[in-house]
């Protein structure tokens, strides 16, 4: 898992049915000192916990599909945790 900051939102009307009622965010990966690291990426947010400018933990690869209740969704990255503080 990695840390990231929500820097944008993606609206898509037509999407595969597993992703209905699931927000899509653009996330900038960050270090724990809240500095930019790497390129932005698109993540799914199956529990709709993230909002604009939030720091989140996201998970990539096969485990991203496990964030959905069905465990079956064509996603490469998912938000799993909304960070309150790091120290």
């Amino acid at each position: 898992m990695k840390l990231g900051k929500v820097i944008g939102r993606v609206w898509a009307d037509r999407k595969v049915k597993q992703l209905h009622s699931c927000r899509l965010h653009i996330i900038q990966p960050m270090t724990s000192n809240l500095r930019k690291k790497g390129k932005p990426l698109v993540v799914a947010d199956p529990q709709n916990i993230a909002g604009s400018n939030d720091i989140v933990v996201y998970v990539t690869s096969t485990d991203a599909t496990q964030a959905f209740d069905s465990g079956f969704a064509p996603v490469n990255a998912s938000v799993v945790e909304l960070v309150d503080s790091i120290y």
Binding site: S32, Q47, V57, A67, V80, S85, I86
Partner: peptide, 21 residues
């Protein structure tokens, strides 16, 4: 292990488990 991450809204698989950086 360098830091600890605190959060309230999270996936249920994470509840009750410490999360570190």
């Amino acid at each position: 292990v360098s830091k600890i991450v605190h959060s309230t809204a999270k996936h249920e698989a994470y509840s009750g488990k410490p999360v570190f950086i």
